[in-house]
Amino acid sequence: MASILNPYISLRDNAREALAFYAGVFGGEPSIMTFGDSGFAADAGGDPVEAAKIMHGYLATPAGFHLMVADTPASMEHSSGGNISISLSGDDEAELTGYWTKLSEGATIVEPLTQAPWGDRFGILTDSFGVGWMVNITAAAA
């Protein structure tokens, strides 16, 4: 298998919801392993609520994207967003506009998806899980 670089998003108590949302945006079937499934339930202090949290959630999409999510245990510090954005780019306007539309549900739009000074369509949003996304649709060659 070739090497894969993909985002791994750490959340607080809503990784299952986020994974379902991203599957709705990009397609694919989520794969989930909880702390209890993994044998690390003892690390969760034996708390059944902590054991039910997602230790590793994975989504492989029909477009070839790979996305991972996890719940941060209550015993660990969690800080969301701020230092990273996920960028979607390409020339398939319909596909990328569709991703933008779905990611926009409940999102904060930082820059609307519109014509950029460099000629492409570009937008920035922070989705309902606090994850930053940039979408760049390459302008058609003249």
Rank of each mutant, 00 (worst) to 15 (best):
S10V: 00
G130S: 03
R121M: 14
D120H: 03
R12G: 00
F21T: 13
V110P: 00
L5K: 00
S128F: 00
M76K: 13
R121L: 15
P30V: 14
T61D: 10
A60K: 09
L88E: 00
F40E: 08
L5D: 05
D92M: 09
P7R: 08
G90Q: 10
A42C: 02
G28Y: 07
E77L: 09
A23P: 12
M68S: 15
G57V: 05
N14M: 12
H56V: 02
K102T: 03
F122P: 03
V25D: 09
A51M: 04
S85E: 12
V69H: 02
S3I: 15
A142E: 14
A51F: 04
F21V: 08
L59V: 06
P112F: 05
V25L: 08
P7Y: 03
E93P: 05
Y58W: 01
M33E: 08
S80Y: 03
G81T: 10
P112Y: 09
F65M: 09
H56T: 03
I84S: 15
T61S: 05
T126L: 01
G24I: 13
Y22W: 10
N136V: 03
K102G: 07
S80P: 07
R121N: 07
N83G: 14
A140T: 15
G57Q: 01
V110I: 14
R16H: 10
D120V: 07
N6K: 06
L88Q: 06
K53S: 09
S104A: 15
A94M: 11
P48D: 09
G130K: 08
Y22I: 08
D13A: 15
P7N: 02
M134C: 08
A60C: 01
G64V: 05
G24S: 14
E77D: 11
T101K: 13
I9H: 03
A74L: 10
N14T: 04
G45K: 11
T108A: 14
A20F: 02
S85A: 15
F40I: 00
F35N: 12
N136R: 04
F26Y: 11
V49L: 07
A74G: 13
F35H: 11
N83S: 14
R12I: 00
D92R: 12
I9E: 04
D120W: 04
P73Q: 08
T97E: 14
G82W: 07
A107Y: 02
R12D: 04
G45N: 12
E105M: 06
S87P: 00
L19Y: 00
V25Y: 10
D71R: 06
A44Q: 15
A60P: 00
S104Y: 03
L113V: 01
A141I: 12
I4K: 04
H78D: 03
G27M: 12
M134W: 00
T126A: 06
G90A: 11
D120S: 09
G64A: 10
T72S: 13
G46Q: 11
V131T: 14
